[in-house]
Simulated scan of single mutants.
Amino acid sequence: MAVLIDPPAWPAHGTLFSHLVSDASLEELHAFAAAQGVSPRAFDLDHYDVPAHRHAELVGRGAVAVTGGELVRRLTRSGLRVPARRRPAQLRPVLHRRWRRLFEATEARAEAVDALGTALLERWSEPHRAYHGLEHLLGVLEALDLLEQDGARPAPDPRTLRLAAWFHDAVHAGDPTAPPGRDEEDSAALAEQLLADPALALPAQAREQTARLVRLTADHRPVPGDHAGELLCDADLEVLGRSPEAYARYTAAVRREYAHVPEADWVRGRAAVLESLLAPDVLYRTAPARARWEDQARQNLTAELTALRG
């Protein structure tokens, strides 16, 4: 485990830049960068950009010089790498293409589809969303793809399932004083309203099913045999089963989202959430999700709860 730096090969602002990363944790990376006077503004999701004239200096102070390929491989293995499709500049076009595909085989009017997709992306891009933003939306959609590829029992209507993913956090006020489930209820009501546009040519049953699935994400407890509900809830909780490093990034983002909550209140509320997640015998409802994420998720949740209690 080390702080790594690759050769200066990335042109910008009239010079070449290296990437400075950690293959252990973002905490290690930030601490090293701060100690060496690297500006926080140089941080870009999983690395710092440092100019060529500082390469030898940073190696002399402990950064390990590696090739660009080795840096990417070790960063990927660590679970800290942010793929290109999840970077802010790529998220919106990637998601908009996915949105359009939901309506390709329908009689929906393209302009209505694009308008609603753009409106939803604007909601998911609200500035107070540190975690419940575009990256989370893409993560849920990709988790659904993965569960289906792994052989999970399919939802009766895969398109409706994905519409529910698009709407499940469309309303996210970030208000800790709101009644539990308020955001999910408001998101479901929004789905019922916006999907009723005749130009979308969406049957009433699909609208009702979309809203029903959105409401399930309030407590992630679908009834047995609700295959669509199980898939959506498992996909929404996929983040809990990521590597410890990626899980730490998730918890940090959630805390930033609720930075206005006093620490004592945050610890108490967050601990209650973790305890409720750990209470059932199984966290995930589908067999592929349990195989992929259950053990790691329980380790992550238990470690966070232990730290909060400490």
Rank of each mutant, 00 (worst) to 15 (best):
L4M: 13
A9H: 08
W10Q: 05
H19M: 07
S22F: 06
S25W: 05
S25A: 15
E27R: 14
L29I: 05
A34W: 03
V38E: 07
S39V: 05
A42E: 08
D49P: 05
V50D: 03
P51E: 07
H53P: 05
H55Q: 12
G60R: 04
G60Q: 02
G62Q: 05
A63P: 03
V64S: 13
G68M: 10
R73T: 14
S78T: 11
P83I: 08
P83C: 13
P88E: 13
A89G: 09
V94H: 14
R97N: 00
W99Y: 02
R109H: 14
E111Q: 14
G117W: 02
L121M: 11
E122M: 03
S125N: 03
E126D: 11
H128Y: 09
Y131I: 03
Y131P: 06
H136P: 00
G139V: 00
E142A: 06
D145P: 09
D145H: 10
Q149W: 04
Q149G: 11
G151W: 13
A152E: 02
P154T: 04
P156D: 11
P158G: 01
R159M: 10
L163M: 10
L163V: 03
A164C: 10
H168F: 01
D169R: 00
A170V: 09
A173M: 11
G174A: 04
T177F: 12
P179Q: 11
P180W: 07
G181I: 06
G181P: 09
G181V: 06
L190K: 03
E192G: 08
L195A: 00
D197M: 02
D197N: 12
A201P: 08
A204Y: 01
Q205V: 13
Q205I: 04
R215W: 01
L216V: 00
H220Q: 12
H220Y: 10
D226K: 06
H227M: 08
L232E: 04
C233Q: 06
A235C: 08
A235K: 00
D236R: 01
R242V: 06
R242A: 04
A248H: 08
T251H: 02
T251V: 13
V254W: 01
R256L: 15
D265S: 14
V267Y: 05
R270D: 03
A271T: 05
V273W: 14
P280Y: 13
D281P: 09
W293M: 05
R309N: 05
